[in-house]
Simulated assay, not measured.
Amino acid sequence: MAGKNRDRFSTATRLKLLGEQTAARVYRSQNRRQARRSRLTGRAALLVLVLCSLIVALAYPMRQYVSQRGEITQEQQRMREAGGRVEELRDEKARLQDDAYVERLAREHLHLVKPGETGYTVFDPDARDKRRTDDGAADRPWYENFWDGVDEADRPDQQP
Rank of each mutant, 00 (worst) to 15 (best):
residue 125 P to S: 15
residue 121 T to I: 06
residue 116 G to S: 02
residue 107 R to P: 04
residue 143 Y to A: 15
residue 139 D to R: 14
residue 89 L to M: 00
residue 103 E to H: 11
residue 91 D to H: 08
residue 124 D to V: 12
residue 96 L to W: 01
residue 92 E to T: 10
residue 116 G to D: 00
residue 126 D to S: 10
residue 105 L to W: 12
residue 93 K to T: 01
residue 93 K to Y: 00
residue 86 V to K: 00
residue 113 V to Q: 09
residue 137 A to M: 06
residue 91 D to N: 05
residue 123 F to W: 09
residue 114 K to I: 10
residue 117 E to A: 08
residue 103 E to K: 15
residue 128 R to Y: 06
residue 140 R to P: 03
residue 135 D to T: 15
residue 129 D to Y: 01
residue 106 A to S: 13
residue 91 D to W: 05
residue 120 Y to L: 05
residue 131 R to H: 11
residue 135 D to Q: 15
residue 135 D to Y: 11
residue 94 A to W: 05
residue 85 R to F: 10
residue 97 Q to I: 05
residue 138 A to T: 14
residue 86 V to I: 00
residue 140 R to M: 07
residue 103 E to P: 15
residue 96 L to A: 02
residue 118 T to I: 11
residue 108 E to C: 05
residue 89 L to N: 00
residue 117 E to G: 04
residue 129 D to Q: 09
residue 137 A to G: 13
residue 98 D to V: 01
residue 109 H to K: 12
residue 133 T to N: 12
residue 100 A to Y: 07
residue 93 K to C: 01
residue 99 D to C: 15
residue 132 R to S: 06
residue 123 F to V: 10
residue 138 A to K: 15
residue 88 E to P: 00
residue 113 V to F: 13
residue 100 A to K: 13
residue 106 A to M: 11
residue 126 D to W: 01
residue 129 D to V: 03
residue 104 R to L: 13
residue 131 R to A: 03
residue 111 H to T: 06
residue 136 G to T: 05
residue 100 A to H: 14
residue 135 D to C: 12
residue 111 H to Y: 07
residue 122 V to E: 08
residue 137 A to T: 09
residue 129 D to A: 11
residue 85 R to V: 05
residue 128 R to H: 12
residue 94 A to Y: 14
residue 88 E to I: 01
residue 129 D to K: 11
residue 102 V to N: 05
